[in-house]
Design a binder for these strands. Structure first.
Length: 559
RNA sequence: AGGGGUAUCGCCAAGCGGUAAGGCAACGGGUUUUGAUCCCGUCAUGCGGAGGUUCGAAUCCUCCUACCCCUGCCA
């Protein structure tokens, strides 16, 4: 992407940057970073952060790094790293230089820890986890100093060396900053900056058995990379004094500043990595890329486009106030993109047989229809017409309801791009279900209005003898409650939508849809936007419904 | 009296002392061989509440209220 693709919108972070630029801070440079921990897949909330960080760099002619915050090897994996790289790329962003890892800086971080010990600003504490919790105090009570707090520099150096050499068991001790056990900000009560983990690390292997904490690693990594604006979410606000303390007390090359914004909440879904992982692990969805998941890979498989996701992020803005964005906003963004860019096609999802009694048996006509009603550059497609057709079951009622614009017994309707037909006879089976319609067609209505009568409306159709068998997967919101996490007594799992996926195995699409590549978007006219799923085979295409069309008929019916 | 934040239309969000942008949703109407798109119109005498300062306050001050985050050797 180029600067022209940068977000047009502005926000409080851009305002800060513009002030910094005016004062020529950081030599007029803007360097940001997107720092995911590789312990899960990226979701729509991350997209907000990605668009902010990369978009800001783009807007101000700066750079944005992709840095994996990999200080907790037990929860991380290469699979997540790969997926994150893939997703950021797919969203359309490019990072500066190589992909970076906090683990790249483990040696420097270690040296800085030694530096702090020598300065008397860090000490090895042999309190165990439970004791440490007790000494820490509470939200309303000050903590107490650890009995190990005043060890000599040499003693601390020696213990830290032992920690590093792997001579100590996990949990026996940790390295802590010596700040203030009585601070009202709990993050300043001698935070742990190194702990022992005899774990294999996905990047550094068995080189280390002590790992820096987030607080110790993050700001220093920012400084090492020359980050000017370190943007994170609101829950890190209380960590900022610690972030600044470390920058001030360490010989870092530059002084980055941390700014916080509100994370994204979207209704009818969840954006907790832990809970998304639970959905996958417990098989409530097929995988991280299940089209119902709010993950980037899920949205991708659902048929969302990078441009739509970026537009959504631009629409919702960046502030410091917590809120919940309406899913309709995301849907609006994808409809907007796909309306302009998706070719049109016809697909009958629940077929009802229509036989044209006055159409010659064995005859076939091919009609050229525009791929897009407004964009001629998208070209044309060919659809086959014949005596045996299929229409949508929903598009027929024996007795037309009020304002009905579809087919009814004895009445006429236009077949999109083809003729006007009239329903002459309704065939039912023994159970009284409608199984076929005998219709007549009006040969004079191809590209012309009928004479002496009016068609009710326009419906879609396919030629039963020349259509592509396909499976259509109708996806809907994953949860039935706007906020599935709100109920204190129930699990979010209790609010899963049983109809979040409805599979229609016997759908039929127009001929041109055969063998289309995965991720190709279409608008199935009158139904919605659909995308080719990678499960498609030569025998059977699979389409996922991305989102329905806006449906004013549904509104009329509900009133 | 723990600390740190946030409150502007149903939702998101501009506004930065000069008289409430925009988007989403909703509701009317027009065009339409997609009940889509598109177009036109309606939608906060009001900015969490109460006081105060000011010629003038969503913007400044005071008090209050509600909600969010913080007691991992997670990030």
């Amino acid at each position: 992407m180029t600067k022209n693709d940068a977000p047009k919108s502005t926000n409080f972070i851009h305002q800060i940057i513009e002030q910094d630029l005016q004062q020529n801070l950081n030599d007029g440079k803007v360097v940001t970073r997107f720092p995911p921990e590789p312990n899960g897949y990226l979701h729509i909330g991350h997209a907000k952060s990605i668009c902010l960080n990369f978009g800001t760099a783009l807007k101000y002619g700066g750079e944005c790094n992709l840095r994996f915050d990999d200080t907790n090897p037990e929860k991380e994996s290469q699979e997540y790293i790969d997926s994150i790289i893939r997703d950021v790329r797919w969203l359309g962003f490019e990072w500066a230089g190589e992909v970076k890892y906090t683990s790249d800086y483990f040696q420097q971080l270690y040296d800085w820890a030694v530096h702090l010990i020598k300065e008397g600003k860090a000490y090895v504490d042999h309190l165990n986890a439970a004791e440490m919790r007790e000494y820490r105090g509470s939200l309303t009570e000050a903590g107490r100093n650890s009995p190990y707090r005043d060890r000599s520099v040499d003693e601390n150096l020696s213990f830290f060396e032992q920690m590093k050499k792997g001579e100590l068991e996990e949990g026996t001790c940790s390295l802590r900053l010596k700040i203030d056990m009585a601070s009202p900000n709990i993050n300043l009560r001698d935070p742990v900056i190194y702990r022992i983990r005899h774990a294999h690390h996905h990047q550094t292997g068995n080189d280390w058995c002590i790992y820096p904490s987030y607080d110790f690693a993050h700001g220093q990594s920012d400084a090492l990379e020359g980050i000017t604006h370190s943007i994170c979410t609101l829950e890190f606000e209380d960590h900022r004094p610690l972030y600044d303390w470390l920058i001030e007390n360490l010989p870092v090359p530059v002084v980055p500043r941390q700014y916080e914004f509100a994370r994204l909440n979207l209704n009818y879904t969840i954006t907790s990595k832990r809970k998304l992982k639970q959905l996958v692990d417990e098989k409530h969805v097929t995988n991280w890329d299940d089209p119902r998941m709010p993950t980037i890979s899920g949205l991708r498989r659902r048929g969302y486009t990078p441009a739509a996701i970026r537009q959504f992020c631009d629409m919702i803005g960046v502030t410091r106030s917590n809120g919940t964005v309406d899913m309709a906003m995301l849907e609006s963004a994808i409809r907007d993109d796909l309306d302009a860019n998706a070719p049109r096609a016809m697909c009958v999802t629940r077929p009802l047989k229509v036989t044209l009694v006055n159409y010659e048996e064995g005859k076939e006509e091919w009609f050229e229809l525009p791929a897009h009603p407004k964009d001629e550059s998208m070209g044309a497609r060919s659809v086959s017409f014949g005596r045996n057709l299929l229409i949508e079951q929903e598009d027929f009622e024996e007795v037309a309801p009020r304002k009905w614009k579809r087919l009814a017994a004895g009445e006429a309707v236009r077949l999109r791009g083809a003729y006007v037909i009239r329903c002459e006879e309704v065939i039912k089976n023994a159970e009284g279900e409608i199984i076929e319609l005998k219709c007549s067609y009006d040969p004079a209505t191809k590209g012309a209005n009928p004479e002496g009568y009016k068609a009710n409306g326009v419906i879609h159709w396919v030629n039963a003898d020349r259509s592509v068998p396909c499976e259509v997967r109708l996806y809907d919101r994953l949860f039935t409650e706007a906020n599935p996490e709100a109920d204190k007594d129930k699990s979010f799992l209790d609010f899963m939508n049983p109809e979040s996926l409805v599979v229609l195995a016997d759908a039929r699409a127009e001929p041109g849809l055969k063998d289309q590549a995965a991720e190709t978007n279409y608008q199935f006219e009158r139904l919605g936007y659909f995308v080719v799923d990678p499960d498609s085979t030569e025998e059977k295409m699979v389409f996922n419904r991305t989102v329905t069309l806006r449906d004013s008929w549904a509104k009329i019916q509900n009133n």
